[in-house]
Design a protein around this nucleic acid. Structure first.
Length: 532
RNA sequence: GGUGGGUUCGUAUAACGGUUAGUACUCAAGAUUCUCAAUCUUGCAAUAUGGGUUCGAUUCCCGUACCCACUACCA
């Protein structure tokens, strides 16, 4: 049995988007499930579209997701250029492999599977325009190659002379006429295409003296002993070419699986960078700043847990056939199967992404969540031991957590207790503050709508009296009940005083955290601001 | 235009050719609570379309419509 080897081969033309992450994930799951290798290869044969930083971003993004390539990337997160036991197929960047490809292009020409073409960009453009004028479509293949400028239409001498000139040349694949190419896809099943409809694809580019994707890809997949190619659907139309290339080289071909595309949440079409910015959700795993300075959101910075992100992505276009929805990476490795990958494109649903994060958030321990929240609390200056407000150098004195009666700051212990109280109400750690800020600071203003509703003397007087006499939520309830006063109205009046609005945590909980003295202090402020 | 792929509630999806077409998200209602959130219960809501094969079709075949991808010396 051959060892399973798959690869993820992105092009560093920009940040990896979530569709790319999903492709990488499926490859990774497939490799691990079969005890095989997951290789990362960088396909940078397009020198014009190269974007600095993109490669680094891709590697970092995969690491954030917990996807570590077995081959191609070293422990420091750099692409490997030198062969070693761990990385026997180095280099893994195609630009560093340029010397390898040339011979294969020539081999194909010698074997009659390809030919040299000398047509200028202008002449091809003209041919296209002429065809269009006649209402036809120009296609460089069996139907036209006899009339164009290539090694098939000129003498060997002339061709040799042309090759010596600096004018440049390309190598084109000589797509056979009328061959039914029979293909099999792990996801889509059997597919047949008549080769007559295909064109003579350029294999070797004159422009930068590099192979095109098609050549480099097949050569590298062969050299790197790839057994399964799992890639995006956009490659399906070139699958016949790739089949024929394997045949031309006489190589055993890998098995193929073409993944459907990720579609935008509304309307049609594939998910693009623009949609995210427009509809307010990230399409990238991490924040990305383009060389021009344009910033795009990332799941990481927006507060998503990598496990939630990965889980959500895994179920977008695949499901195990059971009703389980929450999967760890290890569970995904066990449950995944390419055959169950959905054929049709999946519209991405940002709401569901949030739901996943919420699920993961509540499954985390209070300690872990508290730890994640600490830096924000520190910046806000409400933490015991962090006296200085970030940037301002002002002493933090507004913290009022229960204790001595003097304004006091939150201890890690308190923070953990607060987290336990609020985590079920949050989707992100960044929601915590909005939910619980009034446990750390006294409200400075009061929601007008709730003031109008609850700040009435028939509520205010008993509410104040109750707060003076009771130290806990239970006592308060008993106090109100025994006097047969309207519970909701009185409680909301108190909540208004304590939190500045008519909605939020339970009164008992608030009092427990801020203490009785602080309750009375907040009453003083409220009466001052709102009158009686 | 050509070639290929696709089509089950709004979204993601389930259903050996036999199910009251299931589940989750969203939404709505009710329960609960001092409010909100959470939670629980209930509800709304789908097999694109026309033929065929079959005792029986979401499932198999053909046509149509619609959507997507590809159609570069991009990947």
């Amino acid at each position: 049995m051959k060892r399973t080897r798959v690869r993820f081969a992105p092009s560093p033309t920009g940040p990896l988007h979530m569709g790319g992450v999903r492709t990488a994930l499926y490859n990774y799951l497939y490799a691990k499930q079969n005890g095989g290798d997951f290789v990362l290869r960088i396909e940078d044969t397009d020198s014009h579209r190269f974007v600095p930083g993109a490669e680094k971003y891709i590697i970092e993004a995969l690491r954030w997701c917990g996807i570590y390539p077995d081959e191609g990337v070293d422990e420091q997160g750099n692409m490997v250029s030198v062969k070693s036991e761990r990385h026997p197929h180095a280099p893994y960047r195609q630009s560093e492999r340029r010397a390898i490809y040339r011979q294969y292009a020539e081999q194909l020409v010698e074997a009659g599977w390809a030919y040299y073409a000398f047509d200028s960009a202008e002449s091809l453009e003209k041919a296209r325009a002429d065809a269009e004028a006649r209402g036809e479509t120009f296609i460089y293949n069996w139907s036209t190659r006899e009339r164009l400028c290539n090694s098939l239409t000129m003498s060997a001498e002339e061709c040799a002379a042309r090759l010596k000139e600096s004018s440049g040349w390309t190598v084109r694949f000589k797509m056979p006429k009328d061959r039914i190419v029979k293909m099999d896809d792990l996801i889509r099943g059997h597919i047949e295409v008549n080769s007559s409809t295909l064109d003579d694809k350029v294999l070797w580019k004159r422009a930068d003296e590099l192979p095109t994707y098609h050549l480099a890809n097949i050569v590298d997949d062969h050299l790197m002993e790839i057994t399964e190619v799992i890639r995006g659907e956009e490659w399906l139309p070139s699958l016949p070419l790739h089949y024929l290339l394997y045949e031309a080289f006489g190589w055993e071909r890998p098995r193929f699986a073409h993944l459907s595309l990720l579609l935008k949440p509304v309307g049609n079409g594939k998910l693009s960078k623009r949609d995210g910015d427009k509809l307010g959700f990230p399409v990238f795993p991490m924040k990305w700043t383009s060389p021009e300075g344009e910033v795009s959101h990332g799941y990481r910075e927006d507060g998503y847990f990598p496990e939630a992100f990965i889980n959500m992505l895994a179920l977008l276009g695949w499901n195990p056939g059971t009703e389980q929805e929450i999967f760890s990476l290890e569970e995904l490795v066990k449950a995944f199967s390419v055959e169950k990958v959905i054929k049709s494109g999946a519209k991405f649903n940002p709401e569901k992404a949030k739901w996943f994060n919420k699920e993961y958030l509540r499954s985390k321990s209070d300690e872990e969540l508290a730890a994640l929240w600490m830096s924000e609390l520190e910046e806000r200056g409400v933490l015991a031991g962090s006296r200085v407000l970030a940037g301002s150098g002002v002493l933090a004195g507004s913290g009022v957590l229960a204790g001595s009666g003097e304004p006091s700051l939150a201890t890690p212990e308190k923070v953990r207790e607060i987290v336990a109280l609020i985590k079920e109400r949050a989707t992100f750690v960044s929601d915590f503050w909005n939910i619980s800020w009034y446990l750390f600071e006294a409200p400075k203003e009061y929601a007008p709508k709730d003031v109008a509703k609850f700040w009435k003397s028939e509520n205010v007087e008993p509410a104040l009296q109750a707060c003076k006499e009771c130290a806990t939520g239970e006592e308060l309830e008993e106090w109100i009940r025994s006097r047969e006063l309207p519970m909701g109205k009185i409680m909301n009046c108190i909540r208004l005083v304590l939190s500045g609005s008519g909605s939020g945590l339970g009164i008992g909980d608030i009092i427990r955290f801020i203490g009785h003295d602080e309750v009375l202090r907040r009453w003083e402020t409220a009466v001052e601001v709102l009158g009686r």
